[in-house]
Design a protein around this nucleic acid. Structure first.
Lengths: 328, 328
DNA sequence: CTGTTAGCGCTTTCAG
DNA sequence: CTGAAAGCGCTAACAG
């Protein structure tokens, strides 16, 4: 079973190889009649263009590498989805790699990815390994770091300030007058930075339960148990993800604590379920899909030779108050 | 900024191009000394092998295409993750594409994917478009359909019988003696097949609320509202996903219904949170990660020229009874 | 608008 | 164990 190449299509259509190529991928410069003849031939033979071969010569693989810590981090899912879709609309395809919150793995992953000669790279979070950063910078393809902000990105960055989120949350907690405050947080760099901002702005310590990222409901239950041991008078808990907050809510219910009367809970991410819990969850809204779309736009623009400079896009955030913190 | 090729590495190491190639990718047939010299040269020059070029000649791209309806379907996440990881361990990389529950999109996606000359294809769910099936069969690369079972797979299949799940669930419901039964189900083919088995085995109709796939918590709340309208005496609800079940639970709480005393709830998937809800959720356990691992094994084995025949792997399922259905 | 020529970077023959 | 030649399938560059 021989695989059909452009050569076969050209012969079938009675044109030269290059004309067939142009008819299929650059129709502007070929006569209408030949385009149709070539397309017919392609259909008849069942031709599937070999994008590897095309990419080798044209130096454009039409792929973008995406690096995530773990694919199943709920917060990143809308970003990945929007990214995939936006890239697809521009003819690019996303190649996903998991770095697993591990620096060594990050480096080897970058190398593997780069071997496929992607036209761009999107990272969820900042790149941590200096070697990987250096490597990407040297290759010179567009790189977008996301879900964070820095004034020294590898290339471009689109996200928001976790420090500011922490500070804003502290302000929110203070406005409520809560004295016994607890923090349930994942141990990834972004969550820790939010905690740092929170504690600094609060001006005093707060009971903290650390859990392994990615955080989830089960870890949230354990975190509340832990926090209540540290401070039995706990009034409010600030969580580093909505999943974690959900666990806190469930554990509170299991212990007969009412929310928000006995315990107020705040999440992070405004995941799809947050508004529909009972009581509805106060949380921090992040435009996760917008991050993905913006990243795709930046990459595509740069691939098309447009400048774009070194954009640092701050998409901000918003505290969404719902019933889980409503004092009344 | 010139990109470094194997040619440069070979010159640096003082060997021929092909020796350098072998030293890096087929070390068995080269002397120890030259291997080290070449590796040193590769490191010194910062060489990153161009896998596109290699794949073009060797006809092995070392990639596997993965087709999912939508990346964020919680049930598939462990499968994708295990698949990615298992493939990685064998040196393969997953290229993900989203077909969005749409047959036309499925066809065009298959074509795009095939253009990258993957060494194999993994589909979550069965392939629906006959054209896509035909296309894949003709290309002749290993294909694994997952999360379902059929005696006429494109090539191989690893999953379980949704019909049997439905029948087993009906048996479970009957053993409980519930009379007023409701079904909350997503509208994807697999969920509908489970419903079919359920209703058939039950031997009578059941109130049904259909929601759009992928189902989630918010849709679960609405589904329960809908079911209670259809049957105010509702005793038990069978849901097509744990997320949907969670929504049913939340809506029940919001209405002052106790679980399981007033309403029993059953989910599907045994997602990570199911055991940790309060009350813990009765559900159907699927070895989602095992599906991914098995699919990877089958693909890799076949790529290495081993037979494997036309395996149809049934990984089964298991009803896990927890507090959300405990009558006592 | 169409064709010829060259070659992307690598690996598979086939010889030493 | 090492090397020379050939070419994977396609597109850029130049010419007609």
């Amino acid at each position: 079973m021989k695989t059909i190449t452009l050569h076969d299509v050209a012969r079938e259509a009675g044109v030269s190889l290059i004309t067939a190529s142009r008819a299929l991928s650059n129709p502007g410069v070929v006569s209408k009649a030949t385009i149709e003849r070539v397309q017919a031939a392609a259909r008849a033979t069942g031709y599937i263009p070999n994008l590897l071969a095309g990419g080798l010569k044209s130096k454009r693989s039409m792929t973008v590498a995406g690096l995530v810590p773990i694919i199943s981090v709920p917060q990143f899912l809308p970003t990945i989805q929007a990214l995939t879709q936006s890239l697809d609309e521009s003819g690019y395809q996303l190649i996903l790699g998991q770095s697993g919150y591990d620096y060594a793995r990050e480096e080897s992953l970058v190398d593997t990815m780069l071997g496929r000669r992607p036209d761009g790279v999107v990272v969820t979070g900042l790149l941590h390994s200096p070697k990987a950063r250096e490597q990407l910078r040297r290759v010179g393809i567009p790189v977008v770091e996301t879900w964070d902000l820095t004034d020294r990105p590898v290339d471009m960055v689109v996200g928001f300030s976790h420090l500011k989120v922490g500070i804003a949350l502290a302000g929110f907690f203070q406005s409520k007058g809560w004295q016994h405050i607890g923090i349930a947080t994942g141990d990834d760099p972004r969550a820790l930075q939010r905690r740092e901002g929170f504690v600094a702005a609060l001006g005093r310590g707060a009971a903290t339960a650390y859990v392994k990222a990615p955080s989830n409901l089960a870890l949230g239950r354990r975190a509340l148990a832990n926090l209540l041991e540290q401070d039995p008078k706990l009034e409010a808990v600030c969580c580093s993800s909505d999943g974690l907050a959900q666990g806190v809510v469930v554990e509170a219910h299991a212990r007969g604590l009412r929310i928000p009367q006995d315990l107020a809970v705040v999440g992070f991410g405004d995941t799809d379920f947050a508004a529909h819990l009972h009581p509805a969850l106060t949380t921090v809204e992040i435009d996760a899909a917008g991050i993905g779309r913006t990243a795709a736009q930046l990459i595509v623009k740069r691939c098309n030779g447009q400048p774009a400079g070194q954009p640092i896009v701050d998409l901000g955030f918003r505290i969404v108050e719902r019933a889980s913190t409503t004092t009344s």
